[in-house]
Write a protein that binds this DNA or RNA. Structure first.
Lengths: 196, 196
DNA sequence: AAAAAAATCGACTGAGTACTCAGTATAAAT
DNA sequence: ATTTATACTGAGTACTCAGTCGATTTTTTT
């Protein structure tokens, strides 16, 4: 692994776990074995390093989720939604650093003044919502889901799963014990009949 | 207003809007007209100042929400939930500083090492969830809500509204346009019949 | 009015910060 | 073998920050 890759990988971990402000360049330097100057040789500023990491995360997320959609063939729109929620929650554990980073305040502050950051975040969130949206659209066609404004409902579902992951990251409640309940609640929300 | 009150009020605003790390004691000093030494006379450390603010927020939230529950007399459990969601969203706008502060990562990091912080946060979150829980319990009795594990469902509802407020604070989507949809989705989730 | 206590001040400290730069090592191209 | 380009170094710079301290003012108590 080149120094540049090491810097990206270690910094991604630190930014996610400790936060951007609480991670110093000295620390990244120490853990990678690269001199501080080397970090600034590859990334002009600390912000630039974060942006590069966010691009990595974006690429990773889009890849994982698109390949998931590609491989998966659900029997109904409703099932697709349920699977997508389960996959989201699974990924939030498997790639916790990604989702921890996305829960950090700093990147949204940066997004306000930096176009590139904004684009990356948009790509990530669009990727998530599109999957739910697609499931709803499909479900409306095959009648596994009852009438609802697809985009809006997709956003509501997304805020549910996002909220739950947020709780988990902040050690509020035993959030992972709610995964099953979340899916049940969504099914109730989207279907006419009462499935128990 | 005493210097101490001024410090609490200005710092609360700054911590919420700019974040804890990005607000310096010098800034608080300048905006309150109190010398830096004065701040440290009233609050031993910067963390202590944050904890005092969090206590204020806790008191405020618990007061507002308990008096809301006391005054309100909903016709059914379902209606109570719907009203509570609307009230939560209303308060998240009216007292945005409170909710912005609660969305900051730092307080949860502090909560990990500081008992008092943890207690305040618990009190706040218990207050929220209890209201939803009470609504569900009531709804199960008066049959406006179908079978569900009340505490778990309350947490799911909470993660929905919380997630939506989080989106709003980070300028993702036009979150406030989803308020109505959120309530509709919850109604679908909790009831047997399809109300459109 | 005198003494005691509480509140306020702001210059100062020292540890930390992101970032620079002049120079060195390594690899690639000629 | 020599030049050129790229990767890397780490001491140094300018600056910010939370927190201290001794002195001064204001308030309360006697």
């Amino acid at each position: 692994m080149s120094k540049k890759e090491a810097i990206l990988s270690i910094a991604a971990k630190l930014f996610a776990e400790k936060g951007f402000k609480d991670t110093s360049m000295a620390e990244i330097s120490k853990l990678t074995g690269a001199a501080e100057g080397t970090i600034f040789y590859h990334f002009k500023t600390k912000d630039d390093l974060l942006i590069a990491i966010l691009e990595m995360v974006k690429t990773g997320i889009v890849q994982e989720f698109e390949s998931y959609v590609g491989e998966r063939s659900s029997s109904s729109g409703l099932e697709m939604i349920e699977d997508a929620i389960a996959f989201y929650l699974y990924m939030a554990t498997k790639r916790e650093e990604w989702f921890l980073l996305l829960n950090r305040y700093y990147i949204y502050e940066l997004a306000r003044v930096n176009e590139t950051t904004r684009k990356h975040l948009e790509a990530i969130y669009t990727c998530f919502v599109d999957i739910f949206d697609k499931g709803i659209t499909l479900g409306l066609e095959d009648q596994s889901i009852i009438n609802s404004a697809s985009r809006k409902t997709a956003l509501i579902i997304f805020s549910m799963v996002h909220g739950l992951v947020w709780f988990k990251h902040h050690d509020l409640y035993d959030a992972s014990a709610l995964y099953h309940e979340l899916i049940t609640c969504c099914r109730h929300m989207l279907t006419r009949s009462t499935v128990v």
